[in-house]
Nucleic acid binder design. Structure first.
Length: 806
DNA sequence: TTAGGGTTAG
């Protein structure tokens, strides 16, 4: 009796503690209210009045079980207090009741009080509930302590207990511990296998989930509805539609997929939705006899995630006629929203009382971020009462997406320094790494990589490694990018896309194409981004035949419709051939309205082939869409200037002035001995200016010597063909002091002989500097890598990887 | 009379 009173007392303390700490836990609040409402119910008083005088009245136990099973834990507690002698069965009923209600701390409290104060021994029925509560409370320490007790008492051979432990470890992200439990089980049942299949999926390892499923079948286990639900998720994760369809067929043949099994059907629906198979999804949804809010949510989400905005909203309206949408409906609808619809959803959520809600608010931040409304995203972020790691990640990503790298880095540092339980995770790292890639600083990128290793992030994590591949490649270090790629154990489509793009922007298109073949051989299916990377590779490296071959295979072999981004790369490719009329026809015949990027591509081609007429036409189209496109004005200026059309030069200058457009200041950065040195054209602010200019003169002298004796100097030839006005302009020799040359010279004298010099430039390199860099690489016998605003040029022994087309 | 695995969300 004393023990039961103590338990009740402790339970109250737990309630109070929970009340104080659970303001952020909606679910727990609901349960607390449920308990409080039933504090002194009539049925309890009636049962107590009619109870027998026997010690263990079975009717009381039955009533207790009924209350617990109905979630009426306050009534259950009343009865529990009045019972003469609670045995392990009664305690288990109470622990189960708390666990089912999500009152995990109360369940753990009851267990502790039972074993510590009553002398009653927990049995094999107790532990599955207790372990589930430890998982629910996300308490790894308590769970591990319980695991130790389980081993001590010999319950680890119990299949129910072990299965609970697998789920516990998987839920807390400890897949190695779960695997150890699984491996050491003397016997396994279908639940053990299902727990592993769903567990690996929960920790994000779809490949292992799928592998376990296959192994399960090999071991002679027939998949049940739980297996099907888990493995379909794994198929989506590893992007394996073929296996997903096979499993769907199996589910139909075996009768698992029945028209009234809403959960299995929803899993199937969800799988098709994630693969973009909207018509399959519609067929499944229309065949459902029962549709609950989850099924509707998945269908709304299916339209939203697949760009069927109108259908998503129509589905939402139909849903409203049958049942009440919930907060998840809105979360699913948001990705389909442009800013106007997004704001409407935001208002709807506020009116319906769905806010504050941490997931919905984070989805709103995503929506505002993707719509380019960073300020609105920040307003939502700042007003959030509760912020979790995902909220921070969303805000950081919103900054990065909109090029506000400085703010992203600030926020990231704030999160890093924050004195809280929030620790940046792999998504944070993956979100912030592009900011480092964009900041052009290999040094800072390396520092973050150092942090990642030092802070003991899982260095085999695919998401982190993929981001590192991207960061190193974009910061100019292709070698390190490749090392990170080789480290990825489970290479997903993003891993392959990242490395294909890495080699593409560095001008090694043939390597990209080879990697694409390896990707296909490894069984990873390409997606739209893969082809964007692949076509970029063919375009940058001038691989015309391969480009066409891959472009044509997209739909035919892989069922992927080319998007506007693929047309852009193809246009670049056609542009290289110099056949501008063919390029223009390609634009006219493509199934999209041409964008500024498309016209920009034609403009670049016309510049490279000196066709001012086409250039003027293309520039006009660009400026109709983007009147402040600096690159477009500058390109025209240079073309007119080179042709000596000074009236046109002045006209463009006036136009730029009237539009408030000014030329981007040319900046080049070289990093030496842990410091970044920034140069502008003609810069004389560096402490070693004199030395830099002396080196520049020496290099120019070496180039001239190298050129002597040649029948015809290409540069002299080029100058001799210029008009007198152009020649006058060139004689000023201002290009000789362009920032990229100054940065390169500092790089040459600050790095060891034989080491590569890496320079980053914020604009396109001019022709003369390109020629200078080619020759410098020859006379100094050094590899020089220069990243401009689009690609990396690898200068070596007088040649550039771009093949003189950029 | 009590047990384990299950569908949608950033």
């Amino acid at each position: 009796m004393a023990a039961t009173s103590l338990a009740r007392c402790c339970s109250r303390i737990y309630y109070n503690c929970k009340c104080a700490s659970s303001s952020q836990n909606h679910q727990t609040n609901e349960n607390r209210n449920l308990v409080n409402k039933r504090r002194s119910s009539k049925p309890v008083r009636l049962i107590l009045r009619n109870r027998s005088k026997k010690l263990n009245d079975p009717s009381l136990t039955r009533a207790l079980r009924d209350f617990a099973e109905s979630g009426l834990m306050e009534d259950a507690l009343h009865l529990f207090d009045e019972m003469n002698k609670a045995d392990v069965f009664v305690w288990n009923v109470m622990i189960k009741g708390f666990t089912t209600c999500g009152l995990y701390h109360e369940a753990l409290g009851f267990y502790l009080r039972m074993v510590l104060f009553t002398g009653i021994k927990a049995d094999s029925f107790t532990y599955p509930f207790v372990i589930k509560s430890a998982a629910g409370a996300s308490s790894l320490l308590e769970g591990k302590t319980i695991h130790a007790t389980v081993i001590k008492l010999g319950f680890d051979s119990d299949v129910y207990v072990s299965n609970s432990l697998i789920s516990f470890y998987m839920k807390l992200g400890c897949e190695w511990d779960a695997e150890k439990v699984f491996d050491e089980m003397p016997e396994r049942d279908i639940v053990s296998w299902n727990s592993m299949v769903s567990g690996f999926l929960a920790v994000g390892d779809g490949l292992r989930s799928l592998a376990l499923f296959k192994e399960m079948i090999k071991c002679g286990f027939e998949p049940d509805r739980f297996s099907i639900m888990s493995v379909l998720g794994a198929c989506s994760r590893v992007e394996c539609l073929r296996v997903g369809k096979e499993i769907h067929c199996y589910a139909i043949r075996s009768g698992i997929e029945a028209g009234d099994d809403v959960m299995v059907l929803t899993s199937v629906l969800d799988m098709y939705s994630r693969f973009g198979e909207v018509s399959y999804a519609e067929r499944v949804f229309n065949g459902m006899i029962i549709r609950n809010v989850v099924a509707w949510n998945v269908m709304v989400g299916c339209y939203a995630r697949n760009g069927r905005v109108v259908d998503a909203f129509l589905c939402f309206q139909k849903m409203e006629k049958e049942l009440q949408p919930d907060v998840i409906t809105l979360i699913n609808l948001l990705p389909a929203c442009e800013i106007l619809e997004g704001r409407t959803i935001h208002g709807y959520a506020a009116r319906r009382g769905f806010l504050p809600h941490v997931v919905l608010e984070s989805a709103l931040i995503d929506m505002y971020g993707e719509s380019g409304k960073v300020k609105s995203a920040k307003v939502v972020f700042d007003r959030m009462g509760e912020k979790n790691l995902v909220s921070w990640n969303s805000m950081i990503a919103a900054y990065v997406q909109n090029g506000e790298n400085y703010s992203a880095l600030e926020l990231f540092r704030e999160l890093w320094d924050k004195d809280s339980s929030l620790v940046p995770d792999s998504t944070t790292i993956a979100s912030i790494l592009p900011a480092y890639a964009e900041s052009l600083s290999l040094r800072e990128g390396r520092q973050l990589h150092g942090y990642i290793v030092k802070a003991r992030y899982d260095v085999s994590n695919t998401i982190i490694l993929n981001s590192l591949v991207h960061m190193y490649a974009m910061c100019g270090d292709l070698e390190d990018a490749r090392k990170r790629f080789d480290q990825v154990v489970f290479k997903d489509v993003v891993s392959w896309n990242s490395i294909i793009m890495a080699y593409a922007v560095h001008g090694f298109g043939s390597v990209s194409v080879r990697l694409f073949s390896e990707m296909i051989t490894s069984g990873v299916s390409p997606n739209k981004s893969t082809f964007a990377s692949l076509l970029a590779a063919c375009s940058i490296s001038g691989m015309i035949d391969e480009g066409w071959q891959h472009f044509n295979s997209m739909k035919r072999e892989y069922g992927i419709d080319p998007g506007i981004e693929h047309y852009v790369y193809m246009l670049d490719l056609i542009g290289r051939t110099g056949n501008l009329s063919s390029a223009t026809r390609f634009i006219e015949e493509m199934p999209f309205v041409p964008t500024a990027r498309i016209w920009g591509s034609l403009l670049k081609a016309s510049r490279n082939h000196n066709d001012i007429t086409v250039a003027e036409f293309a520039a006009e189209q660009v400026l109709k869409m983007e009147h402040d496109n600096t690159g477009c004005y500058v390109l025209l200026l240079n073309m007119y200037s080179e042709a000596g059309r000074w009236d046109d030069v002045n006209r463009i200058k006036l136009l730029m002035k009237s539009q408030g457009v000014s030329r981007t200041t040319n900046r080049s950065i070289v990093e030496t001995k842990g410091r970044a040195h920034v140069f502008t054209n003609g810069d004389r602010s560096h402490v070693e200016t004199n030395k830099i200019y002396q080196v520049l003169d020496i290099v120019l002298g070496m180039i001239e010597e190298e050129e002597e004796g040649k029948e015809e100097d290409s540069y002299v030839h080029c100058v001799s063909k210029m008009r007198p006005e152009t020649l006058l302009k060139e004689n000023s020799n201002s290009y000789r002091r362009h920032s990229v040359r100054l940065a390169t010279c500092l790089g040459l004298i600050s790095t060891e002989t034989g080491r590569t010099v890496l320079v980053r430039n914020n604009t396109r390199i001019c022709r003369r500097c390109h020629e200078f860099l080619e020759k410098t690489s020859k006379v100094t016998r050094r590899e020089i890598i220069v990243g401009d605003s689009k690609i990396f040029h690898h200068f070596s022994n007088g040649c550039c990887s771009c093949g003189n087309y950029w």
